[in-house]
Amino acid sequence: MDNKNRQEANDNIEVWEDLVRIKDLVLAIAICAITTMGAYFIAPNEAPKPLFFGLAGALIGFIICSFIIKPKRNFKGTGEK
């Protein structure tokens, strides 16, 4: 397992104390931007609904990203005894 991981390309950079792959980061930002602003604009135009829609959009973007992007972390150790 360890060996295989070492052969993977070193293509992660550090942003805000954790690793990201540039392509994935661009993708995540694009997805969240589209879902957030998309939801904001389709909301009925009476306060505070656009804000709520926008927040829900941001959350949906976050969930989509969590599904399609793999974290750049490997695990050692077996966890709970």
């Binding site: 805000w16 980061l25 997805i31 959350l59 969590s66 992007i69 974290p71």
Partner: peptide
Amino acid sequence: WVPHEAILGL
């Protein structure tokens, strides 16, 4: 399960 990219995107 939570990639750093998703947090930054959020």
